[in-house]
Design a protein around this nucleic acid. Sequence first.
DNA 1: GTAATAGTGTCTATGAGACAATATCCG
DNA 2: CGGATATTGTCTCATAGACACTATTAC
Lengths: 244, 244
Amino acid sequence: MDDDHWTPPTVLLAVDLVILTLRDARLHVLLVERGVEPYKGAWALPGGFLGHAAEDLTAAAHRELREEAALDAETLHLEHLGVYGTPGRDPRGRVVSVAYLAIAPGLPEPTAGTDAAGARWQRTDQVLSGDLALAFDHRKIVEDGVERARATLERSSLATAFCAPTFTITELQRVYEAVWGISLDPRNFYRKVQKSRGFIIAADTDRKVTTGRPARLFKAGPRTDLYPPMIRPSDPPETKGTEG
Amino acid sequence: MDDDHWTPPTVLLAVDLVILTLRDARLHVLLVERGVEPYKGAWALPGGFLGHAAEDLTAAAHRELREEAALDAETLHLEHLGVYGTPGRDPRGRVVSVAYLAIAPGLPEPTAGTDAAGARWQRTDQVLSGDLALAFDHRKIVEDGVERARATLERSSLATAFCAPTFTITELQRVYEAVWGISLDPRNFYRKVQKSRGFIIAADTDRKVTTGRPARLFKAGPRTDLYPPMIRPSDPPETKGTEG
DNA sequence: GTAATAGTGTCTATGAGACAATATCCG
DNA sequence: CGGATATTGTCTCATAGACACTATTAC
């Protein structure tokens, strides 16, 4: 190791994106159909190699976001998710992938990008259950991304990133319900988000047309860290019986 | 991008380790004095390049742990911390570093490793305040590592990893106090950790010699996720005044 | 006994969750 | 008016935190 002539190995660096959104009150992830080998024809996360040696990782993530999903980076929360670098995960050689998590409000159907034969929103539960197999280790990455989103919702105001610029409290509640996969009491939820100062603030815009009493509109507040946090129920899978 | 002849750039991949421990009831991080350029003579986190192209990232982290800190990997919690790949952070070229967080119980003074002129435990507050400048962007990595440790203590049984195989509840309390930088009520802490099933379990070994009533000894339980979580006080830096 | 630390009991304030009741729209 | 959803009120239970108190050692 103190050999001065030893040179470290190089690796290929890629970024992969877990782009989550809500459609029909369900959590969806953006997938692209691979147009090139390996895994040609299979569904995969949008992503790709570093464009050039001096490109910043987050810049590459934003670039892929634009190229493969036609999404403007400004409106999106982008968060480092993890590193996936198990040898052998990519048949082309040693590829280490840096995964990012992006949260988007409801979006129209995506169009295929340059390297992709197609692109579509896919329900996360169908990906996680294995009903739809993904290329590489992308199922695992989606799994980590969804879990991260669930955890982040508890302590940050991320949920508003799923919503339109203005939203009702009920719409915000749907975000939590979809991501957490549970249902919440609307009345308790209502007071809870209101009590969390800086989370949401009133937006006295036009009310939406609905059946029933029209709801007030809100927009995201300045707070990014939530206190007190939104507690996700049924966190304890096994509260008892662990010890005799 | 659909240019078949384009080949992606390669990067140098490194792992860096934030190894935290408790000494004199204070949080310390392991640093090494660099014996080679760049930043020769400066203090830095232990770490290094991938040993060979097929080496797994976590394997590289464990290897560096052994080489530079002489720590057995078995006893350590090792957790992915983040990726630091800003262009220009390393004068040798495009180096992307994957950082890992390791938690160790109290350890003796380290000895210098192969690439290091020296090694020592350094108080994290002195690193974070900038009293001691580190090489590269390592101060930022330490900052992220400490914050991660603080957050992880809340929801996992990680705190026991700072302790010896058996420990008293007061010793466990010292861990929380040192990492969080606060003081806790011993009586409430006592009942709280006891109530968290599977966190700690009784170990009827010899009691330690102390002044005062000898404490019961415990060891780490099977639980890794804590429920209910240990709440870290003073989480809200600004509970009021955010909005008019 | 005193000093010192370990461990228990109990009170209070706060928040989560259940759920009744009221408000405001559409038709 | 009835139907539907929004918003408020109130009750109950669990828990965090404060802190008086008891227990067990060394001297």
